[in-house]
């Protein structure tokens, strides 16, 4: 028992080492083809050293896209959180309501099915034409996209409530309201959180898209401007920041979920 555990631990260390080596090799190859042998032009792929340097400088330098990195990040975050929180506040209760109420289900769902078949990016031109190029239109895009994912998952979470749980609660004399709040919603919580996570990921991607089309700040704007300025180093810095912030957002939500959805595997 102890031996096999030790073996497992050794294996784990081995694979972490392999990962580190693999990543180092990746960086070395990148460095070789750019700085050492100059196989590709820096305009299409800058060296890793240059990217790191630009990343550090971007915290203080505003050129050429008008803002520092942290200003871009904050601008994007503000939009995503506004639209996303609004999307959650509307999406979760509406999804629960649709799943719980038969009439609502029959009449709202067909319209919603139609609404959700609109590709996420498709909301961008619609909202921009309605609200113009400003924060409101971008928040509305985030709202529409996160709302769809959140509503679908809340809906199917409630619909997937184990009927035996409902039976048991009913035989204990639970009222309709208690069935909803004590049984259906708690059992749907993991689904609801899946929706919140999906919604957040999609919302983050849509902010980037919206900023690329019309904005004067934000990470999407940053990568778009730097393409026009042919600054591949800053595009990569922007892309990595987009990925990193997205990961952090998911991580925070995951921690939140771990804390509040208990009693599951």
């Amino acid at each position: 028992m102890k031996l096999s555990k030790m073996k497992k631990k050794n294996n784990k260390v081995k694979y972490i080492l392999i990962s580190i080596i693999s990543f180092t090799v990746f960086l070395i190859i990148w460095y070789m083809v750019t700085d050492v042998f100059k196989l590709v032009k820096p305009i299409s792929l800058p060296s890793p050293v240059k990217v790191l340097e630009s990343f550090i400088n971007k915290f203080t330098v505003k050129r050429p896209d008008g803002s520092t990195l942290q200003a871009h990040v904050l601008s994007s975050l503000r939009i995503v959180l506004t639209g996303y929180i609004a999307g959650s506040i509307v999406g979760v209760p509406l999804g629960i309501f649709m799943a719980w109420n038969r009439k609502a289900d029959m009449f709202i769902r067909p319209v919603f099915d139609w609404f959700r078949s609109v590709p996420g990016m498709g909301w961008i031109p619609v909202m921009i034409l309605i609200f113009g190029i400003n924060i409101a239109s971008k928040a509305a895009i985030v709202f529409a996209i996160s709302f769809v994912a959140i509503l679908i998952n809340s809906y199917s979470g409630i619909k997937n409530t184990n009927p035996v749980h409902m039976w048991v609660a009913q035989t204990f004399g639970a009222s309709n309201k208690q069935l909803l709040f004590r049984v259906a919603i708690p059992s749907a919580l993991p689904h609801i959180f899946t929706g919140l996570r999906q919604g957040l990921n999609q919302a983050w991607a849509s902010v980037v898209a919206a900023e690329m089309i019309g904005s004067n700040r934000g990470l999407g704007y940053m990568i778009q401007m730097n393409r026009e300025n042919s600054r591949a180093d800053l595009i990569i810095v922007g892309m990595l920041s987009i990925g990193l912030v997205g990961t952090i957002l998911s991580f925070v939500l995951q921690k939140f979920e771990d804390k509040y959805v208990r009693g599951r595997h």
Binding site: N162, V164, A169, T171, F172, G173, V183, P186, G263
Partner: peptide
Amino acid sequence: DPKIGVVYQETNLFPWLTVMGNVEFGPKA
């Protein structure tokens, strides 16, 4: 009706509640 109690073959416990939470569910409702 609470006067008729049922135990099923499987998965009849609420996984999101503790043992105490499950056992006190009826009177709490």
